[in-house]
């Protein structure tokens, strides 16, 4: 508990949970790439990870991710409130030299990502929003698998849905643009020479990740992926 009452301790747990969540995003992106293989690939992938064989690790991952998400949000909110209390005003004339939009909006982009996450789960996991184009609304594909491919294609053919996802990926990019490097710095990784390299690498990684996710709605909108 002494660890968590220390400001660095809180930051370190923020950093660790953030890294776990980022690694999940990387895994999620790798899974997404199967959509470019066509209907057969992504439907097979979706059926596989939901098969009985994968159930125990899937549930373990869900529990870990949910715990990390909860801790990340709770500590982030606590730190945000403490930091706001420590700095009620920074004067009338504030100039920023190194802090970019990304680092200064972490709390707010975090909240937006939470809102998006709820929407995304309701859409593709619980099928309660856009129910008419959800997996459960379609008959199984030729191999008898749930037709996730059809749901993805029909969802992103609607510009409002595709636009929402693209906007959300811009927010994820903004959050991780600072988050990836910041977590490494908090864990004490950088030295004098490696700091600028790690910072740039974190920014590149965050941009690539968000761009990778954004590629799916863009591919559907442009007709690269179609039924």
């Amino acid at each position: 508990m002494a660890f968590l009452s220390n400001p660095i301790g809180k930051k370190m747990l923020m950093a660790l949970t953030g890294i776990v969540l980022f690694l999940f995003l990387v895994a999620h992106l790798l899974g997404n790439t199967t959509v470019f293989g066509g209907q057969g690939w992504i439907n097979a992938y979706a059926e596989h990870i939901h098969s009985a064989m994968f159930a125990p690790p899937l549930w373990a991952a869900r529990v870990v991710l949910l715990a990390c998400l909860g801790l990340h949000i709770a500590l982030g909110t606590l730190l945000f409130l403490e930091n706001t209390k420590a700095a009620p005003t920074k004067g009338t004339f504030v100039t920023y030299k190194e802090a970019g939009l990304s680092s200064r909006t972490m709390f707010y982009t975090g909240l937006l990502i939470l809102a998006y996450l709820i929407y995304h789960l309701l859409h593709f996991t619980f099928h309660s929003v856009h129910a008419s184009i959800s997996v459960s609304a379609f008959p199984p594909d030729a191999q008898g698998r749930p037709d996730l491919f059809r749901s993805i294609a029909l969802s992103f053919q609607r510009p409002v849905i595709a636009g929402t996802y693209l906007l959300a990926m811009a927010v994820v990019c903004l959050h991780t643009f600072h988050g990836v490097f910041s977590s490494l710095q908090t864990l004490g990784l950088p030295g004098k020479a490696s700091l600028p390299v790690l910072k740039r690498a974190g920014q590149v990684l965050a941009t690539l990740l968000a761009a990778g996710f954004a590629l799916v709605p863009v591919a559907v909108l442009t007709g690269w992926i179609n039924l």
Partner: peptide
């Protein structure tokens, strides 16, 4: 003392 935590803004 009431100082905040580090957010790595580097200001």
């Amino acid at each position: 003392e009431g100082f905040g935590a580090c957010s790595n803004h580097f200001e």
